[in-house]
Amino acid sequence: MSKTMKISESLIEIAKPYAEAQHRSVPKQIEHWARLGKAAEENPELSIVFIQNSILALAEEKAGMATPYSFGE
């Protein structure tokens, strides 16, 4: 389900270089920021780097790139 949303031109302009650097579209970059912001608000005790790495780990697991961790080895 796709909905149209009005996003300010200033936010779009700010997102452009970040999107290009991360090989994302501008809308995907803004979605990424929204996902990070939501997670940060829900978990104020966690650093943004930890949240970013957690999102990456979930995406890697979903893509079948996860490997089991062996404790004590």
Rank of each mutant, 00 (worst) to 15 (best):
E9P: 05
A34S: 12
E45I: 00
M65P: 00
H32V: 01
E73C: 11
S10A: 11
S54L: 10
A39E: 07
I12H: 10
A34F: 03
H23Q: 12
A15K: 07
F71G: 06
L36I: 07
V49A: 15
S70V: 15
E13K: 15
G72F: 09
T67D: 14
H23W: 05
P17A: 01
A19F: 07
E9N: 12
I12P: 00
S25M: 02
Y69P: 00
T67C: 08
Q22S: 13
M1A: 14
K28F: 01
F71Q: 13
Q52W: 00
L46E: 15
T4H: 09
P68R: 14
S10L: 06
S54Y: 07
T67E: 15
R24F: 03
E73V: 14
N53D: 14
G72N: 12
S25P: 04
E41G: 05
E42C: 01
S25K: 10
P27T: 04
E45F: 09
S54M: 12
L46V: 04
A57T: 13
P44Y: 01
L56D: 13
S47F: 07
Q52D: 10
E61Y: 06
L36R: 03
N53R: 15
A40Y: 03
K38C: 03
N43P: 00
V26I: 15
K3T: 10
P27H: 03
I12F: 07
Q22F: 08
A66W: 11
A40G: 00
E61L: 08
E73H: 13
F50Q: 14
V49R: 13
I48C: 05
W33E: 09
I51G: 05
E61T: 13
K16Y: 04
E42I: 02
S70A: 13
A34C: 06
S70E: 15
L46I: 02
S47W: 03
V49M: 10
H32R: 09
I55R: 02
E41R: 06
E20D: 15
H32K: 06
K62Y: 14
L11Q: 10
E13P: 01
V49K: 13
G72A: 09
